[in-house]
Structures are given as structure tokens and as C-alpha cells.
């Protein structure tokens, strides 16, 4: 229970990153599976080389940002479909992550990390460490909520909601997407750095399927705790991450294998996406739709310019008859 809560709070940092792309930018970003490992791998290798743990963790954030920028550029400048751009970066990162670690994993057992003081004080696995991780998640959450209310943050929100409107007010939607992807994957990389220190190693498979965990946190959290405004939505995501880890814990306790967890996660997300569409469920529980109604998006096509009803023609015809 406590361990699941601890993990949930650490992964909440990742989930908040996924929230930025999936909800704010309306961009399902699959870079996450790669950038999480990149963050974890970078931090681990730096720690083994006796770099200050705070610096090593910050480097995890930085590497994640770079991964996000690559996906952003592929999508906006290379005009590659968003899902594909994320997959391409993710696959490329697999090789890069192996290069970073010089192998499939980096153990951190006798290395001094951010978790070392907690471990020595025997706080790990107690509510005290959960509280500390909670404070970290809360700080990240506060930063995101603050950012989204700045001029820049509002421009990013507008980009995700209505590109036509955003561009008409001088917002470079390409730049906003790249920035959003960078921030998002930066947080994911940061979470990777924290998790590798928590579990005492980084390995090449630590990020596999993570996007599903992130989406599950966002969707389940918002279905249960709402998304009335940014603050509400962000808190819901963080709580969703904890709920997700608790659900996994419960599934393991009833005898499911850790190998079954990917399937469980996928089914959980499918349920969370499909249930709100059933009118019965909507009526009974008032569940908020998993999809937020978005405005008209994308550029108008050439067809729309010349395809409209015409009073003049109609009037002229009427007069002729």
C-alpha cells in the first residue's frame, strides 16, 4: 500500500507530463516510452560517475526535453503524423539509451543517490517518504498550473484547443507544440531519473508501455476527480497516478502475475475511454466524458474557400425564373 503510493507519487511527475501533451496540446505522444528510459539512464550513468545527485536528476529532465524537441520538430517541420513522430523518436531512443548505459542496465546499489539519505534514515516504505514524494509531485503540479496561466501557457492551451484562433492572434502553433513536447518529455525524463534512483537501477525496459500508465492516470483521474479547471485537472492526474499504482497492487495481491500487468493496464485504459461513451453509465454516474469537446482544428482546406452557399446566385436565379 505504502510502496504503491510512493510509486504512484513518483510516476505522477510522468503523468503530469503526459497530461500536458494529451490534454493541453491534444497530442498523443508516444515519445514517453523512450524519454522515460533516457532520463533514468542518464541520471544513473552520471550517478555512477559520482556526479551530484541533484545535477544528475536535472540532467534526466534535460535529456527528456531534447527527446521532446525531436518529436516536435519531426511533427511540425517534417509534417509527420504525431503518433508516428513519437514512435520514431521512441525507437531511435532505444539504441541511444543502450549507448548511454553502455549495456542493458546500470545498477545503483552502492552509489549515493537522492534516495540514499531516505534509505539510511529508514524512511523508504514509510508514510514519511510518501509525504516527501508527495511534496515533489505537488511542486511539479504547482509549476505546471502556474505556467498554464501565464501568457505563454495560455498560448499553449489555445494551440491545443483551436489552432485557427491561436494563429489568428499571432501564436506560432508549431513553436508551442515543440515547447509543450519538450516540457512534457522533460517531466517524463525527470520521473525516469527519480524512479531509477528509487528502484536502485536503470534498465532498458523501464519505459516500455509507460505511455499507457500515463494515459491511465490522466483518464481515470479526470473521470473520477473531474477537470473543471486546470488546477482540478492537474490534481486529478496526480491522484489518478496513485490510484493506478494501487489498482496494480491490488491486482498483484489477488494473484495476477507481474507479466500480466501490461494487459491489465491496456484494459484499464480501454474501459476508462469506452465507459463514459455509454449513455447508461453517463446517466447513472454523471461520469465526465473522457474526451473534451474541442473546437474546430487544423487549417482550412482549399475546398472550404470556394464551397459555400450563395445568395447572389440564388437571387439571380429566382429573378430569372
Amino acid at each position: 500500500m505504502i510502496v504503491a503510493t510512493e510509486l504512484g507519487l513518483l510516476y505522477a511527475v510522468m503523468a503530469l507530463g503526459v497530461y500536458l501533451t494529451f490534454r493541453i496540446l491534444d497530442f498523443p505522444d508516444l515519445t514517453v516510452d523512450g524519454s522515460f528510459t533516457s532520463g533514468g539512464a542518464t541520471a544513473a550513468v552520471l550517478l555512477v560517475n559520482n556526479v551530484n545527485p541533484f545535477l544528475a536528476t536535472a540532467a534526466g529532465f534535460g535529456v527528456g526535453c531534447i527527446a521532446g524537441v525531436i518529436t516536435g520538430i519531426l511533427h511540425t517541420k517534417g509534417h509527420i503524423n504525431g503518433l508516428l513522430a513519437g514512435i520514431l523518436t521512441q525507437i531511435g531512443l532505444y539504441s541511444i539509451n543502450l549507448r548511454i548505459m553502455g549495456g542493458a542496465n546500470v545498477p545503483l546499489l552502492r552509489t549515493s543517490t537522492l534516495m540514499t539519505p531516505l534509505r539510511e534514515a529508514k524512511l523508504l516504505g514509510t508514510w514519511s517518504s510518501a509525504a516527501i514524494f508527495g511534496a515533489v509531485a505537488l511542486a511539479v503540479l504547482a509549476l505546471i498550473v502556474w505556467f498554464l496561466h501565464t501568457d505563454l501557457g495560455l498560448a499553449m492551451q489555445a494551440t491545443g484547443e483551436n489552432e485557427v484562433m491561436a494563429r489568428s492572434f499571432g501564436i506560432s502553433t508549431d513553436r508551442q507544440k515543440i515547447l509543450g513536447l519538450a516540457l512534457s518529455n522533460g517531466l517524463v525524463g525527470l520521473a525516469g531519473a527519480l524512479v531509477s534512483q528509487y528502484q536502485g537501477f536503470a534498465d532498458i525496459s523501464m519505459g516500455i508501455g509507460l505511455i499507457v500508465a500515463g494515459l491511465a492516470s490522466v483518464i481515470i483521474g479526470q473521470a473520477i476527480f473531474g477537470s473543471r479547471n486546470i488546477l482540478n485537472a492537474a490534481v486529478a492526474v496526480a491522484l489518478g497516478s496513485v490510484l493506478y499504482r494501487l489498482a496494480i497492487q491490488v491486482a498483484m495481491d489477488v494473484g495476477l502475475d507481474p507479466n500480466d500487468m501490461k494487459l491489465m493496464s491496456a484494459l484499464l485504459v480501454v474501459l476508462a475511454l469506452v465507459l463514459p461513451q455509454w449513455s447508461v453509465v453517463r446517466r447513472i454516474s454523471g461520469l465526465r466524458a473522457a474526451y473534451r469537446g474541442a473546437g474546430p482544428q487544423g487549417a482550412l482546406t482549399a475546398d472550404e474557400y470556394i464551397d459555400d452557399v450563395d445568395d447572389l446566385e440564388i437571387a439571380a436565379k429566382a429573378k430569372g425564373e
Binding site: 495560455l154 492551451q157 489555445a158 484547443e161 483551436n162 485557427v164 484562433m165 489568428s168 473546437g295
Partner: peptide, 11 residues
Amino acid sequence: QDPRAGTAPEL
């Protein structure tokens, strides 16, 4: 033309 086009609905 589209009243939805000029504003961001969730803001």
C-alpha cells in the same frame, strides 16, 4: 464564419 472558430472553448 463559424462562431466556434474565433475563441478557445475551454478557456
